[in-house]
Simulated assay, not measured.
Amino acid sequence: MKEPIRVAITGGAGQIGYSLLFRLANGETFGVDQPVILQILEIPQAVEALRGVVMELRDCAYPLLQDIIASDDEKVVFNDANWAILVGGKPRGPGMERADVIRDNAPIFVAQGKAINDYAADDIRVLVVANPCNTNALIAMNSAPDVPADRWMAMTRLDQNRAVAQLADKAGVQPAAVSHMAIWGNHSPTMLPDFEHAQIGGQPVTSVIDDRAWLEGDFVEKVQQRGKEVIDARGKSSAASAANAVVDHIRSMVQPTEGTWFSAAIYADGNPYGLPGGLFSSFPLRMMGSGYEVVSGLELSDYARRKIGTSIEELQEEREAVADLLK
């Protein structure tokens, strides 16, 4: 049997954490022959709830789950971690602006970045899920100077999945028929779901769905606003679909990408599209052996560049809001 990998998860008693932990433990995410050790962080007020989650994990008797470590101590949770999934964060409250959320979350990600830097394994990979995830990733990475920039990502796979579902529904096909969907920019209502390079059944989306007005209008807006739509309907933010996107992201990272690509926000320095560096922006990516690469050679239309530019401007504004925390 393989050596177990240590997976650190923050916010383990929250909605996303609860939906995610069991799928990390059952072999679905890292592989049916890969043992895991779950190292779960919660704030002190939620430790008792986390204790109940740990009970349930143990009661599942997963053969691949070698151990569970639950704590409110970042040093304990990130110790020797090979993967860190940063789910826990402070949610947006009534009357709060996006800049307020960024400032409220900043101390959390400074502390977690430092703990990852000091205690995680040399091969650590980090996925930031807690919003605003692009800038939270930037804060955490800047607090971990010894961890290479290419180990950090922020999650836009949920946006990709939402876009795939909308296109499939419009075209009357199964989601598996939709490929080459990329998300560009920020995980926010400014993101661009790139229908111009996506395919349905191997054909360009724009030839299968011959309705440019719908693609630029209802489709893009639906993907951008889907999180709010879920909150309005459910009274709570997306949880199971977010956990599912984490699983999809990790699967794409642990096995070579064949014939298509996936989306994630990465540190944008040196990207092949000339987009500004010094921030985390979403790109189409391919996994190549042990590392990923940005899909290059895509021709971006004036429409796409305009939309991506708006999202980049927002990311630059977010970076300015936390400039004092970035070294």
Rank of each mutant, 00 (worst) to 15 (best):
K2M: 14
E3P: 11
A8G: 04
A8S: 13
I9M: 01
T10L: 01
G11T: 05
G12L: 09
A13S: 15
A13I: 05
G14D: 09
Q15E: 13
F22P: 04
N26V: 06
T29W: 00
V32I: 12
Q39P: 04
L41G: 11
L41D: 08
V54M: 09
D59G: 04
I68T: 14
S71W: 13
D73S: 15
E74W: 13
V77M: 12
D80C: 12
A81W: 02
A84T: 08
R92S: 10
G93F: 11
M96Y: 02
D100N: 04
P107I: 10
I108N: 08
G113P: 14
N117A: 07
Y119S: 09
Y119T: 03
A121S: 14
R125N: 05
N131Y: 03
N134L: 07
N136A: 06
A137F: 02
A137R: 10
L138C: 06
M141V: 04
S143C: 03
P148R: 02
P148N: 00
W152Q: 00
M155F: 00
L158N: 12
D159Y: 07
D159R: 05
Q160K: 07
R162C: 01
R162Q: 09
Q166L: 09
L167V: 14
A171F: 03
P175M: 05
V178G: 13
H180C: 10
T190M: 01
D194K: 06
E196C: 03
Q203N: 12
V208N: 01
I209Q: 04
R212G: 00
L215Q: 08
F219S: 07
V223H: 10
V230D: 11
S237L: 08
H249F: 14
E258N: 11
T260G: 08
A265E: 06
Y267F: 15
D269N: 13
G277M: 02
L279R: 05
P284R: 02
L285G: 03
R286T: 12
V294M: 10
G297V: 07
K307M: 10
K307L: 12
E313S: 14
E314D: 11
L315D: 11
L315R: 07
E318G: 08
A321L: 10
L325R: 15
L325D: 04
L326G: 00
L326I: 15
